[in-house]
Design a protein around this nucleic acid. Structure first.
Length: 300
RNA sequence: GCGCCGGUCGGAUAGCGGCCAUUCCAGGAGACUGUAAAUCUCCCGCCCAUUGGGCAUCGGUGGUUCGAGUCCACCCCGGCGCA
């Protein structure tokens, strides 16, 4: 096995310290970081997404940040394509790609654990289907593709619509299979006790709000034409800050709501990552252990 | 002191004599085939069980009634009004 083909992946819930670890590992083992974050891809979403700053990068190259217009929807498929390109570019420079992020779907798609049908979103169709109720959509799906209907969540309109969209384009939803799995990679997960993570989340939120930058950022995004509706769909900070700016929530309500919502998000991330048995878990403080794990992996 | 209103699962709330005590928030467990920070599901009084079953419970104590969270009396607590 040659060193160039190895890939490092860092995952974990929000506020667990992934970005800092990625920088440290990149500096130590000659790596470049590829972000795996569905919100940090957007330009202008900085404070709210906790995007790493130039200074924090400490000279390490970072990829797939600020590559998309927030007014337009970025998708997993684009992510996978771009990230695969970045991986080979980095490897051709004889460096180690370090994939780092909290978006489980993006990481699994990139690694090849989830197959993504080659069917782009069909906005017109979606708009039409959105008027239907979940039972109606499910009935349609049962008619078109009974196979897929068996495994889908029949209460989830978004999934049902996507399935129908695929069927309209290519006839049926092919059974999911592992495709093109990336070899030679090591997954490192950062985890800390719930109480500690909660505390970190609150503290970080408090700082971002106190320094006023986050509220300014959201106000500015809206001034530049990012609709409130779009903010809602971006979730968390953008959703609740926009509700605050529109006067639906007081500042205190907004902060409380955000704290609990971010915590719930962190739990969802954990649920996703926990089922991946390849991830080796560490606490952020176990840096030495992480170093030696990486060392061993790179030398084998 | 008098009058009015209210006291229901951690918080808020529905319930106007009988059928499973409702809904929201918070809490917990999960799902995930191009929106994934999104979207969706389940649990959330106690005990046992595989479906299910058993026992509680609506501030307190009595009462009316075949039957009471719901009606009555008194008491306790909170709010408002009048003194």
């Amino acid at each position: 096995m040659n060193l160039e083909s190895k890939i490092l992946v860092i995952v974990g819930p929000t506020a667990s310290g992934k970005s800092a670890l990625a920088v440290t590992l990149a500096r130590r083992f000659r790596g470049e970081v590829i972000s795996a974050d569905s919100r940090q891809v957007y330009r202008g979403l900085d404070v709210g997404t906790g995007k790493i700053t130039k200074k924090e990068m400490r000279g390490v190259h970072h990829h797939l940040l600020d590559i998309a217009n927030p007014k337009k929807q970025f998708t997993v498929a684009e992510y996978k394509k771009l990230a695969r390109e970045k991986i080979s570019q980095i490897q051709s420079r004889n460096k180690i790609p370090i994939i780092c992020g909290g978006t489980g779907l993006y990481i699994d798609a990139l690694l090849g654990n989830i197959a993504i049908p080659e069917v782009p979103p069909n906005l017109a169709l979606r708009k039409k289907l959105e008027r239907k109720t979940a039972p109606e959509l499910f009935a349609l799906l049962q008619m078109f593709d009974p196979q897929r209907a068996k495994t889908i969540d029949q209460h989830n309109p978004r999934r049902l619509i996507r399935a129908i969209e695929i069927i309209k384009a290519i006839g049926s939803v092919t059974p999911s299979q592992h495709t093109n799995i990336l070899q030679n990679m090591r997954m490192i997960g950062l985890i800390l006790p719930p109480a500690e993570l909660k505390k970190k989340i609150s503290r970080r939120l408090f700082v971002r709000i106190r320094e006023y930058k986050m509220i300014q950022e959201v106000r500015e995004l809206h001034r530049k034409g990012l609709s409130w509706k779009r903010m809602e769909s971006l979730g968390l900070e953008y959703r609740y800050l926009s509700r605050y700016l529109r006067g639906f929530l007081t500042k205190t309500e907004m902060i409380e709501k955000l704290k609990t919502e971010i915590w719930r998000y962190a739990k969802r991330q954990m649920v996703w990552f926990k089922r991946n048995k390849e991830i080796k878990w560490f606490t952020p403080k176990e840096q030495r252990k992480i170093f030696s794990a990486v060392q061993v992996f790179l030398c084998q």
